[in-house]
Nucleic acid binder design. Structure first.
Lengths: 191, 191
DNA sequence: CAATTTTGGGACATCAATGTCTCATTGAGA
DNA sequence: TCTCAATGAGACATTGATGTCCCAAAATTG
């Protein structure tokens, strides 16, 4: 899919652009290409040299972010051990790449056309996260009285909330995962 | 603050513009003024006649939305009865005006400068929602192990998630409040 | 060190959104 | 019915983002 190796320097520049774009666009999806170039510490010409179009750039950031999140998800080994433990690992992994989540989730429109997060009626998605949730519901670890999709959205929503609070410095970054998991497992009830 | 009465027709037009703007901007915060005017079924000239500036319009929508949410909050009588019941009333009331919440929350930047949702360090906010949460924590209804602000953000986040799912037709509108409350109270554990 | 790649900055043309204005039409209220 | 506020459509200048191109400087590579 991608050229196996681009001269080292190009790869570095490309990653810098993608990462900066995700960061900036997460905060302001109408950010200027000049803003993004500046954030990536790159000339605007260079940005255009890598991504001819704004659309092309956004698309690339979407795909890169999806890949990053997918990698994080796969690394969590969701099919192993008790569902509750697996979910804790997943949340911890996703919080670490919160910027990407913030970007993808901040604007539902960038994901139009991707079955991943959507609800295309007849799509038998093999999303590992959904599989985990359904397994947990079957084993009595998660509430079987609501849809797996709702639980998934709740998880994403809490991660989003935590990532945002952290991004604005309202809570320390290292406490986010713990907070999200605690709320996820107990709601807001004391325990 | 507002002129007591504007010729009847003007008031109607103004409300139509504000409502349409909230609806359109909630979905796409970079929507064109022409888009908004069209959604309000009004000429672009008329839009400019009411709100000279884009900034002025957005500002007006923010304030109108804040007023709507505040009204909903006040109507819930948060200082009466058990905290858990009060929270249920609040969630139900806020879900009803989900469009405004979607608009205000979809772009954290529109709220910059408003102490309402923020965390200005030294601001002793008298936000009734925070007061309810703190009361609930003191009375043992809500988890005292996390900050009241975190709980508030979780509540908003879940309402946002529910409103979005409803807006995209993924869940029936009348089930949202119930779903949010259930998740809020129990997390995702079975019970 | 020499050759080649990669880069930054600037000069453009282009395009879409914005804001201002005018004028003819509409419609509500006296 | 008459009057005047309110509106819609359009013309227009302005602005800012965008995309393209070129060239000299810098960095990477051999």
């Amino acid at each position: 899919m991608t050229e196996t190796s681009e001269s080292g320097a190009r790869g570095r520049t490309r990653r810098a652009i993608l990462s900066a774009a995700a960061r900036v666009l997460a905060r302001d999806r109408s950010a200027t290409l000049a803003d993004i170039a500046a954030a990536a510490d790159v000339g605007r010409s260079t940005l255009h040299r890598y991504y001819a179009d704004r659309d092309v750039l956004v698309q690339a950031v979407v795909e890169d972010s999806l890949a990053v999140l997918q990698e994080a998800t796969e690394g969590a080994g969701l099919d192993q051990g008790p569902p509750a433990d697996a979910l804790r690992r997943l949340v911890a992994a996703l919080v670490d790449v919160g910027d990407r989540a913030l970007f993808l989730w901040g604007d539902p429109r960038v994901l139009e056309g991707y079955p991943t997060a959507g609800d295309p009626d007849c799509e038998p998605v093999d999303d590992p996260m959904i599989e985990l949730i359904e397994r947990g519901q079957a084993e009595g670890a998660f509430d079987p009285g609501v849809s797996a999709q709702w639980i998934q959205h709740v998880v994403w929503g809490l991660i989003y909330t935590g990532a945002e609070d952290a991004a604005y410095g309202r809570i320390p970054r290292h406490g986010v995962a713990q907070l999200v998991i605690r709320t996820l497992e107990n709601g807001i009830r004391p325990h």
